[in-house]
Lab assay of single mutants.
Amino acid sequence: MAAGGDHGSPDSYRSPLASRYASPEMCFVFSDRYKFRTWRQLWLWLAEAEQTLGLPITDEQIQEMKSNLENIDFKMAAEEEKRLRHDVMAHVHTFGHCCPKAAGIIHLGATSCYVGDNTDLIILRNALDLLLPKLARVISRLADFAKERASLPTLGFTHFQPAQLTTVGKRCCLWIQDLCMDLQNLKRVRDDLRFRGVKGTTGTQASFLQLFEGDDHKVEQLDKMVTEKAGFKRAFIITGQTYTRKVDIEVLSVLASLGASVHKICTDIRLLANLKEMEEPFEKQQIGSSAMPYKRNPMRSERCCSLARHLMTLVMDPLQTASVQWFERTLDDSANRRICLAEAFLTADTILNTLQNISEGLVVYPKVIERRIRQELPFMATENIIMAMVKAGGSRQDCHEKIRVLSQQAASVVKQEGGDNDLIERIQVDAYFSPIHSQLDHLLDPSSFTGRASQQVQRFLEEEVYPLLKPYESVMKVKAELCL
Rank of each mutant, 00 (worst) to 15 (best):
M1I: 06
A2L: 13
A3N: 14
D6Q: 04
G8Q: 14
D11V: 13
Y13H: 10
R14C: 15
S15F: 13
P16A: 10
P24F: 15
P24M: 09
P24T: 12
M26L: 11
C27W: 11
C27G: 11
F28E: 06
V29N: 15
V29I: 04
F30L: 10
D32C: 07
K35Q: 10
R37V: 08
T38I: 14
W43S: 07
A47Q: 12
E48P: 00
A49Q: 01
L53F: 05
G54S: 09
D59F: 06
Q61M: 02
K66F: 12
E70P: 04
N71Q: 08
I72L: 12
A77V: 12
E81L: 01
K82H: 04
K82G: 10
K82V: 11
K82N: 07
L84Q: 10
D87T: 00
H91G: 07
H93Q: 07
T94Q: 08
H97S: 04
H97M: 09
C98S: 10
A103I: 10
A103W: 04
I105M: 13
L108Q: 04
A110E: 02
T111M: 01
Y114P: 01
V115Y: 00
V115F: 01
D117P: 00
N118G: 11
T119M: 06
D120M: 07
L121P: 00
I123R: 08
L124K: 11
N126S: 15
A127R: 01
D129G: 15
P133T: 10
R137I: 09
V138A: 10
S140N: 15
R141G: 14
F145A: 08
A146V: 05
K147S: 11
T154I: 10
L155Y: 04
L155D: 09
F160Y: 06
Q164I: 03
T166N: 03
T167K: 01
W175A: 15
D178M: 00
L179N: 05
M181R: 12
M181W: 09
R188N: 04
R190W: 13
F195N: 02
S207E: 01
E213Q: 14
V219I: 06
E220P: 01
M225I: 03
T227Q: 07
T227K: 07
T227N: 08
E228M: 13
A230G: 06
A230D: 05
A235I: 11
T239F: 01
Q241G: 01
E250G: 12
S253R: 06
V254R: 05
L255T: 11
L258R: 03
G259W: 01
S261H: 05
V262T: 15
V262M: 10
K264F: 02
K264G: 05
I265L: 14
C266R: 02
E277K: 02
M278G: 04
Q286D: 02
S290D: 01
S290C: 03
A291G: 02
P293C: 07
Y294Q: 00
K295W: 01
N297T: 08
N297A: 00
P298M: 05
P298W: 00
M299K: 03
R303G: 05
C305E: 07
S306V: 01
S306C: 07
T313H: 07
P318S: 07
P318N: 00
A322L: 08
F327S: 07
T330F: 08
D333L: 02
R337W: 02
R338I: 04
I339F: 08
I339M: 04
C340R: 02
L341M: 05
E343M: 02
A348L: 09
D349T: 07
I351T: 14
N353A: 11
N357Y: 01
E360D: 11
G361N: 09
L362M: 11
V368M: 00
I369D: 04
E370W: 10
Q375S: 14
L377H: 02
A381I: 05
T382L: 05
I385G: 05
I386M: 01
I386Q: 12
V390K: 04
V390N: 01
G393V: 08
S395F: 08
S395P: 05
C399P: 05
E401K: 14
K402G: 03
V413A: 09
E417H: 08
G418C: 00
D420M: 03
D420A: 03
N421G: 05
I424W: 12
E425V: 07
E425M: 09
Q428I: 12
F433W: 03
I436C: 04
L443V: 15
P446N: 05
S447E: 12
T450R: 02
T450H: 02
A453F: 02
V457C: 09
R459M: 15
Y466C: 13
L468N: 15
L468P: 09
P471N: 12
V475C: 10
M476T: 14
K477T: 15
K479Y: 12
E481H: 14
L482H: 13
C483I: 11
